[in-house]
Amino acid sequence: MKHRQTLLIAAVAASFSAAALAADVEAAKGLAEQNNCLQCHGIKKDKDGPSFLKTAEKYRGKANSEDELVKHLNSGKEIKLADGSKEKHKVIKTIPPNDAAQVKNLVQYILSVQP
């Protein structure tokens, strides 16, 4: 009985976290297209930058992973490209500007990319 209860709680918790991770996929894709993310990042293939999958595997499960990626997209910090050269990462733009929820949603989508 207790075992079944634990399972039930686990299932409910899993469905909640899945819902949280699922984010608004269409909105995430829209924001990525709008910002030309795919010019440098593949979903599963590396281009000049790492694939979303690689980023997901690097950050998934880590504490503050969402915050780290949000900061990455908002700060325009220096990054290293596949050919070893360095430049500043594009700062993500939202309509309306600085909409944290839209950026967070995209980050949640990136973290949810599976092989």
Binding site: K29, Q34, L38, Q39, G42, I43
Partner: peptide, 17 residues
Amino acid sequence: KLPKGYKDPNAKDAEEW
């Protein structure tokens, strides 16, 4: 805004969406 349903033809892996 880009229209909903728009796919960038230049993004070679856009079909992975």
